[in-house]
């Protein structure tokens, strides 16, 4: 089980790999769409990698609810 800090770091690395955004930019308050300019297909790729890395399921309907980086970190922490 990863703790909040580990999830935050791991998720930022995934975002960097999928979307080419510096992991340091992927801070909790950032919105995936509005701040980081990540499109819906990249969100799916991020979700798939997060599922593998953290052992969670992130269905598409849940994914749509994850607006900010912190939403995703919290969701993973609760469901891993």
């Amino acid at each position: 089980m990863a703790d909040i800090a580990e999830i935050q770091t791991g998720l930022a690395e995934i975002v960097e790999e999928v979307a080419g955004i510096d992991a340091a930019e992927v801070t909790p308050e950032k919105s995936f769409v509005d701040d980081l300019d990540i499109d819906s297909l990249s969100m799916v790729e991020i979700a798939v990698q997060a599922e593998d890395r953290f052992g969670v399921k992130i269905p598409d309907d849940q994914l749509a609810q994850l607006k900010n980086v912190s939403d995703a970190v919290d969701y993973i922490a609760k469901n891993q």
Partner: peptide, 11 residues
């Protein structure tokens, strides 16, 4: 359903 198909295809 673009997202669902994309997820299936990429995995």
């Amino acid at each position: 359903e673009g997202q669902a198909v994309f997820r299936w295809a990429t995995t």
